[in-house]
């Protein structure tokens, strides 16, 4: 009885969460361009998607932006962690405090603050400003993912490498870095996802003629969204689904990438906040 009720409740919440996704997927096969009625099944949007320069451009921009910002954030963030480990506790805590700001702050405030910075610096709004903004909100994900791993790291492994005659830099790349790899990858993937989905911060730091998928969708909402967008989102969602499936069914990578799946930005904050305070 209790079990049945539990299952019913679970199902209801899942329906609530997936109803919009199902709707979008159905609309991507809708032959009528109006979203008000279903005019029959078609794959036309999936074909014309690749010929729609605007959508494809926005898609390319989004992917390049996500990749670049995640990559740079990963390098900067990992370096920051390496440096912080060598610091005294107090300075480390201060930096971690600063790192937490973009995570806990409202996106709109982060967005307008960066906008004001670019205005004050008389920068031209466009790809570069958005890239800088994305790197800024991505670095915390990397740090909050890598830092805990650094703390768990067995310091004597590094010392053993030195003892066996390795130079510090060699020991770092051969012994420490491999141990951190799963956390670094997880930070990268998280950054990538966050960048992919960001709208608010991009909205305030973009310039004319620049569009990511999110900003394009936002500008289209008033006049009606092009069904090709549904097709693209469906494809992207399914790609993630398949990737997650593959990752989850390979025991060897369960620990590394598998972990990413159930963590979202805010979740990391909670987890790290707790660990950080120890």
């Amino acid at each position: 009885m209790k079990k049945t009720l539990g299952h019913i409740y679970l199902t209801l919440v899942l329906i609530f969460l997936y109803a919009p996704i199902a709707t979008l997927m159905i609309l991507s096969f809708n032959s009528s361009k109006s979203r008000a009625r279903f005019g029959g099944f078609t794959l036309a949007w999936y074909q014309s998607l690749f010929e729609n320069e605007e959508v494809m451009n926005a898609f390319r921009t989004t992917i390049i932006l996500a990749f670049l910002s995640a990559f740079i954030a990963t390098v900067l963030g990992t370096a920051a962690c390496t440096g912080m480990v060598a610091m005294r506790k107090r300075s480390r805590n201060i930096i971690m405090g600063i790192t937490n700001i973009p995570m806990l702050n409202a996106d709109i405030v982060t967005g307008v603050s960066l906008m004001l910075l670019f205005i004050a610096a008389r920068a031209t709004m466009g790809f570069t400003t958005v890239l800088f903004a994305h790197i800024t909100f991505n670095i915390p994900y990397v740090i909050l993912s890598v830092m805990p791993r650094y703390r768990e790291l067995n310091a004597s492994v590094y010392e053993a490498a030195l003892d066996l005659g390795a130079k510090p830099l060699y020991a770092f790349f051969k012994v420490v870095l491999p141990d951190l790899m799963s956390a670094i990858v997880s930070g990268f993937v998280m950054s990538f996802t966050m960048s992919l989905d960001d709208f608010i911060i991009t909205h305030f730091t973009q310039g004319p003629g620049f569009d990511t998928l999110s900003t394009k969708i936002y500008s289209e909402i008033k006049k009606g969204i092009n069904p090709e967008m549904y097709a693209l989102s469906t494809l992207m969602f399914l790609t993630i689904l398949i990737l997650l499936f593959l990752v989850n069914y390979k025991p060897w990578s369960k620990q590394s990438v598998g972990e990413i799946k159930i963590r979202t930005r805010k979740e990391i904050v909670v987890g790290s906040g707790r660990r950080g305070a120890v």
Partner: peptide, 11 residues
């Protein structure tokens, strides 16, 4: 969360 949040809200 892996589907664009604007689109999901729009749906």
């Amino acid at each position: 969360m892996w589907m664009n949040s604007l689109l999901r809200t729009y749906a």
